[in-house]
């Protein structure tokens, strides 16, 4: 039953893809133009219409054009032709590096702090309004403040990732720790378990699924933020790549980058999904 469901799902997925590609092909097929002659020829050339009447290279590409463009990018992902022209692999590596750094700092602060907040109802009550206030702020709103105060665009990007990805981790850790079943804590108390042992052997495993969920949400946010941040600071990264191609009005490359952002985001998410499976327990 489940097997046939999965099969049918895959077939439907492929059908959707086929319909999508077909629509794309129909929508972007260039209209045939006649070759201009005589005096109009120079004008046509200056306008980018070659004598053969080929479509403009800068509009939305056809699926075939897109495939060849994607192949060109993917076949040489690590080229480096100067500070403003690097391959897609190099750009993605820069972005992942920034995300890893900002995210690691966020995790290092959010998880211990969340532990404290979760263990102390007083701290929880005191800090909750601030967390709720800071949580919904957009990364783009942080950017000018960061640029102005940190005075370094690379550090600003990392700061923005940090500040946006710290909240879900913090809240989920606190929530998970606060929600550990009282019975287990009572058992630990009757057995006279020390506070450190209690934290690592009772609370941490009990709260782990909630903490990992928070980390997973944070990773999603960090990956969303990096694209926006890099579009603003320029220089390197996938966000800069999108901006640079957009500046050239090269939609094909922008679509390609969007696809790559999606693929990497999906991989990061499935990484945490696996981790989550490992720490889940049945009560």
């Amino acid at each position: 039953m489940t097997k046939s469901l999965r099969l049918r799902g895959a077939v439907l997925s492929l059908a959707i893809l086929a319909v999508f590609l077909l629509t794309w092909q129909i929508a972007t097929t260039p209209a045939k133009t006649t070759a201009p002659s005589g005096a109009d020829r120079e004008y046509a050339e200056l306008m980018g219409n070659s004598a053969t009447g080929a479509a403009l290279a800068n509009g939305v590409p056809t699926p075939a054009q897109f495939a060849s463009l994607a192949w060109k990018q993917l076949s040489d992902p690590f080229y480096d032709r100067g500070p403003n022209d690097k391959g897609i692999g190099v750009q993605l590596a820069y972005s992942l590096g920034r995300v890893a750094l900002g995210y690691a700092i966020a995790a290092l602060i959010a998880i211990p702090l969340g532990f404290f907040i979760g263990m102390s109802p007083l701290l929880y009550a005191a800090l909750d309004p601030y967390i709720q206030l800071l949580k919904p702020i957009s990364p783009l709103a942080w950017m000018p403040i960061a640029l102005y105060t940190i005075k370094d665009s690379a550090t600003s990007a990392i700061f923005v990732i940090f500040i946006c990805s710290v909240w879900p981790m913090l809240i989920n850790t606190a929530f998970g720790v606060a929600g550990v079943r009282k019975d287990w804590l009572n058992v630990a108390r009757t057995l006279e378990v020390g506070p450190l042992r209690k934290a690592f052997l009772v609370i941490l495993p009990a709260a782990a699924p909630t903490i990992i969920t928070g980390m997973r949400i944070s990773m999603g946010i960090a990956w969303l933020v990096i694209v926006a941040a890099e579009m603003l600071i320029g220089g390197t990264g996938i966000g800069y790549f999108v901006w640079n191609q957009w500046n050239n009005l090269s939609l094909g490359n922008v679509i390609f980058a969007v696809l790559m952002i999606g693929v990497i985001g999906m991989l990061l998410d499935s990484l945490f999904a696996n981790l989550q499976k490992k720490v889940t327990y049945a009560e």
């Binding site: 980018g48 290279a57 800068n58 032709r81 100067g82 403003n84 022209d85 640079n244 191609q245 050239n248």
Partner: peptide, 8 residues
């Protein structure tokens, strides 16, 4: 070239 203006 792409390193500079990145335009036709």
């Amino acid at each position: 070239t792409p390193n500079y203006l990145n335009q036709p």
